[in-house]
């Protein structure tokens, strides 16, 4: 994670696939995972592979809108 300002951890088993976080992320860093979780939803996931100019800033907007408290946010 060297060089990054922030990062998030999404608990896929808490996610209900509302995707409000995807809508909220200013840098489009969240996507839809292609495997169902145990609740039966396609959970959101953090797309770490994104390029440099679209880095996570740890703004926590995704966590703020997440109805299921599935996202933890880390910042430098």
């Amino acid at each position: 994670m060297a060089g990054k300002k922030g990062t998030i951890i999404i608990d896929r088993e808490l996610c209900k696939g509302c995707y409000l976080c995807i809508e909220a992320c200013p840098n489009s860093l969240i996507g839809i995972f292609d495997e169902l979780n145990q609740l039966g939803y396609y959970p959101a996931y953090y797309r770490e592979e994104n390029n440099k100019d679209r880095e996570c800033t740890g703004c926590a907007t995704c966590a703020l809108v997440c109805p299921d408290v599935a996202i933890e946010v880390y910042r430098e």
Partner: peptide, 11 residues
């Protein structure tokens, strides 16, 4: 890095 957002204590 430090945790800036997590499940609150009273949840």
């Amino acid at each position: 890095m430090q945790k800036v957002f997590q499940r609150p204590k009273y949840l």
